[in-house]
Computed example of a mutant assay.
Amino acid sequence: MTTMPSDAPPQWAHYTEPAFADVHGLRTAYRRSGAGPAVVYLHGTVPTRVWLPLCEHLAQAHDVVAPEHPGFGDTPLPAAIEGFEDLVLHYDAFFDTLGLWDIHLVGHDLGGWIAANLAIFYPRRFASLTLITPSGLNTRARLDVPGTDPFRLTARERADALLNGRADRYSEFFTQEGFPEDVVRSYEEATTLALLAWHPRYDRRLDDRLARVAAPTLVLGAEDDRLVSGAVAERYAELIPGARHVTVRGAHGEESSHLLPLEHPREVAELAAEHVARNA
């Protein structure tokens, strides 16, 4: 195995050097680019340590801030983080540290679950909310779909579920330092996910709490989400007052998958930007 000099910049695809904010003693990694209305993108469980093409598209007309959750990417997991309420407090302090208000909040998967909680607890902080194939809700349809429990899938099964068997096309987003470093980092991030969502795999309190969301909300679902049932995105739209649900269509005869930000970054960016403009 070739060892890269410690002072050499990382070479994997889509890498950009993160900035760091001190949030109550936690060195929080984030990336930022663009100018215009403030858009905060909260990532899903994968990928981390990259500047996504989705963010690049949004940064053409927005001030895009993409932090990495505690326990993901280059942000360490402190002992104080034990659940979603702790993440909500962390991000509220992070926004204060960067001087962000009237935020257009965009979250994918786990990031959508976190974004929904932020909009519940701080309803007047956000100008709009966009949830992309979010997780966090329990639906009968989800429980009836075999193989959707992320903690019961092998790495290959999970990759197939994320991208409907097309994961090999996007290997550049997941291959970074190589073996064994990538495996170790993936395990560390999976451990953080387990801390947040091991039992249960959803938050039953969201069904009542989502009525508190005041930000105009757009929920983007996939045609064939094999990791989180499409019924979850639909249910978010039903529970959030005035929310719109839009299904992002696939291309070339292929139905869209859970990882919409990777497969359809331009289409997702256009829908999110339209939502931001409508509520700026």
Rank of each mutant, 00 (worst) to 15 (best):
L42D: 03
D92G: 02
M1F: 13
H104F: 05
W101F: 05
A159F: 11
G221P: 06
V184L: 14
A38K: 13
D203W: 07
V232H: 01
H90M: 08
V183N: 07
L100M: 14
L118T: 01
R244A: 14
R278T: 11
T148R: 00
Y170W: 08
L26C: 03
D102Y: 08
P70V: 02
Y122F: 14
G73W: 10
H90P: 04
G250L: 09
D22M: 03
S128D: 10
G73K: 09
V219K: 02
A215G: 13
L227A: 08
H14K: 05
F173N: 09
N117I: 05
L220P: 04
T192P: 13
D182V: 08
R204C: 12
H108T: 12
S257W: 01
D109A: 13
Y202F: 09
A21R: 01
F173W: 09
D182A: 10
R278V: 04
H264P: 06
G99R: 11
N117D: 14
G71W: 13
D74E: 15
A80P: 08
E274V: 06
N117V: 09
T130L: 08
L87S: 13
E172Y: 09
E82W: 03
A237D: 14
E188G: 11
W12T: 09
F95D: 00
Y170L: 04
A190N: 14
R166P: 02
S257M: 05
A19Y: 07
R185M: 04
T130E: 07
P78K: 01
L143S: 12
